[in-house]
C-alpha cells in the first residue's frame, strides 16, 4: 500500500510538470497532497494526514487558484 501510494505520487508529480495550464498543475498538486494525506493515514499518523489535507490540498490550492486568477490565467510560453 505504501509503495502504491508513493508510486501514484510520482506519477501525479511528473504529470504536474508536463501540464500546459497552470490551473491543471495546481489541481494535480492538490491530488498529490491528497495522496500524501492517504499515505500518512496509512502509516498511522492521522493527525499529520488531517493537517496535510487541510493545508496542502485546501489552503495551498486555494491560494494558487486565486493568484492564477489574479495574474490573468498565468499565460506563459516556453
Amino acid at each position: 500500500m505504501t509503495e502504491l501510494l508513493l508510486g501514484l505520487q510520482v506519477i501525479v508529480a511528473i504529470a504536474c510538470l508536463w501540464m500546459k495550464k497552470p490551473l491543471a498543475a495546481v489541481i494535480l498538486l492538490g491530488a498529490f497532497s491528497l495522496l500524501g494525506a492517504l499515505l500518512f493515514y496509512h502509516l498511522d499518523a492521522p493527525d499529520v494526514a488531517l493537517t496535510e489535507a487541510a493545508v496542502g490540498a485546501g489552503v495551498t490550492a486555494l491560494i494558487f487558484v486565486w493568484f492564477i486568477h489574479r495574474t490573468r490565467g498565468g499565460e506563459h510560453q516556453e
Binding site: T2, E3, L6, Q9, A13, L17
Partner: peptide, 19 residues
C-alpha cells in the same frame, strides 16, 4: 525535476520499508 522527484520518492520508499 522529474528525476529529482523520482529519486526522492525512491528514498522515501526505502525509509518507509524500515517502519
Amino acid at each position: 525535476a522529474a528525476l529529482i522527484v523520482t529519486v526522492l520518492v525512491v528514498l522515501a520508499g526505502f525509509a518507509a520499508s524500515e517502519l
